Simulated scan of single mutants.
Amino acid sequence: MSANESISDDLLARYVAGTTTPDEQAQVKAWLAQSTDHAQELARFERVWEASTQVGPPAMEVDVEAAWSKVNKRIAAKNEQVEPKVLPLRKSSFAAWRVAASVLVVLGLGWLGYRWMTPIEKAEIAVVKTQKNTLEQTLPDGTKVFLNENSTLTAAADFNEETRTVTLKGEAYFDVKRDETRPFIINANGTEVRVLGTSFNVKAYDNHVRVAVTSGKVQFSTPKQKVVLVKDEAAATSEADTIIKLPALNFNEMAYRTRVFVFEKTNLSDVVASLREGYHADIRLGSRRLENCLLTARFEKESLDTTLSVIAETLNLRVVRRGNSILLDGSGCE
């Protein structure tokens, strides 16, 4: 029995790449339990997947559409040639970080739920913290928060009373439940973000705080200045507690949550920076002559290997792995 008769190649690809949801993982495991042939099929698919990420010699002229086609053809060709063999699964480093942090996350969520569901003293607070992982959390008021890695969200002891106040260190995307009687307030490294109900991203790993709004209206303030941001607007703090509105909203900054990257004649140095933050991977360029190569492409919930393979095919580059680092190298695009 082949995998295609009962499970999609897309789901198997994301399972091998380590980007499946818990429900999808359960679906694959149930499929594996149906027959020993399925384990062999999955092992063969993993060999095909790994083989497909090995980029060959540069072509003379390749665009993004041709690069996608070439990567897909390699997967199909290898699928017909590789003999079935049971191999251990090797998931991406992004998934490995999530597994490594699972115990911490489970314990943290259990404690957080207990603190928010039972009476607490005014002096006490509730904390959600991430390390080498991301985490989505629903607050008691119905607000959804998606924390990036190395971030901490602290809720005030009187949360859900007159105001809904939290403190953020790191980065998080907020989808705030609207409540006109209780404003939602985020304190982040000397700044304040105040809303009634909207969606936005706050990046506050240091004193350079950035706010990007995807819906509704946000009030962003420092001790010296206050600005109002609406949908598709962004701003950041600068010297002397001032706020500067940015020329355009960069949705790639939120790819750690969406796993969607959109590049429009973007310098390769900026592409690599976006991928590094979005995939939490150490990606570098082999030389400075590659920095100004331009890329126009869209990647939506693709694995890191697939994304890098398409970029390499498009710009005639090689993907070189050195330990935990990934290098994009080649002769350049001049």
Rank of each mutant, 00 (worst) to 15 (best):
H38F: 04
P119H: 02
V28R: 00
A77P: 07
M60K: 10
P88L: 00
W31V: 01
W116D: 14
G56L: 09
K70R: 14
T20W: 05
D10V: 04
A51M: 11
N72M: 11
A101S: 13
A95W: 13
M117D: 15
T21Y: 01
V99R: 11
R47C: 01
A39C: 09
E80L: 10
L109V: 07
L12T: 04
L32I: 01
G110T: 13
M60G: 11
W49Q: 06
Q54S: 14
V71E: 13
R44G: 00
R44M: 07
P84H: 12
R115T: 14
V99C: 04
Q34T: 09
A76K: 10
G113Y: 09
W68T: 04
R74L: 10
V105P: 04
V64G: 06
G56E: 15
P58H: 03
R44D: 03
K78P: 12
K85Q: 15
Q27M: 08
W68V: 01
S102Q: 09
R115V: 10
S92M: 05
R74G: 04
R74I: 08
G108I: 00
E65I: 10
M117L: 12
V55F: 10
R115Y: 02
P84V: 00
R74D: 08
A67Y: 01
V86H: 13
R98M: 13
K70C: 01
D10W: 02
K85I: 12
W49D: 08
R98Y: 13
T21E: 12
T19H: 11
V86G: 07
G56K: 08
G56A: 15
K29A: 12
Q34N: 06
G108T: 03
S93L: 11
V99Y: 12
L104A: 12
V71Y: 15
E46H: 07
L32V: 00
L107F: 15
A59V: 07
K70W: 10
P22H: 09
S102W: 06
W31F: 02
R47M: 13
E50R: 15
A100Y: 07
D63G: 08
L89I: 09
R14K: 13
S69N: 15
G113F: 02
G113P: 11
P58E: 00
R47W: 02
A77D: 15
V71M: 10
S52E: 02
V16F: 04
T21C: 03
Q40I: 03
T21M: 03
A30P: 05
K73L: 09
K78L: 14
S69L: 06
P57D: 07
Y114V: 02
Q25L: 05
A13E: 13
V62N: 12
S102F: 06
Q34A: 09
V106M: 10
A26N: 06
